[in-house]
Amino acid sequence: MSCNFKFGGMKALLAIGGLLCVLASNATAQSSSGQLTITMNVQSSITLVFQNNPSVGTPGFCPLTNGGTNNVGLDMGTAAFPGNFHTATCVNYTHLTAADYQVSSAFDVVVTKANSSSPNYRLAAQISTPPPANVKWLLNNVTLTNTGFTALDAADAFGARITKTLQVQVKNTVAAQVLQETITFLATAN
């Protein structure tokens, strides 16, 4: 009886061992591997954004809408020749002559470079449509046209605020109307 018991114990041990072996073999890490190859080619690039000037809100520095991007709005309000009339307190209003007035506001242009050895950049601008007769759009006293980019700067520093003043000059004969231009700035790495 004792012998039988022992034999039975051995069988049980063997069975458990076998089960463990099976389990172990089943539990052997099932794995699979793969290899993903990644390639890319880095290119230099630059970006241009418009920022509010630190003096924003004071005369001559109107706030940009959507500032910090490359597509902003600059509302200079309503103005008229007689009586130095202008509604925006953030613009500079002046009578240039006995028959012309100018409304102006300044903002900053920031051009940033990446992966580029370019030392600086040149800046140009262009208006979108021909302005009405006797109306001029200028940047820092440089008259803009819609026929091509007008050079503004030859070697501006990357990452630096470049303050530009947008000026609208209107003769007193210009009829009441909304004067609107989309001014495109072009920065080109030197």
């Binding site: 099932q30 591997s33 793969g34 290899q35 990644i38 890319m40 290119q43 992966n115 050895s117």
Partner: peptide, 18 residues
């Protein structure tokens, strides 16, 4: 940004699922 323009970046990633 300091990486030069024209630099080719290439590598492999080995994945193991267990």
């Amino acid at each position: 940004f300091t990486t030069a323009s024209g630099t080719l970046i290439s590598n492999t990633i080995n994945y193991v699922a267990t």
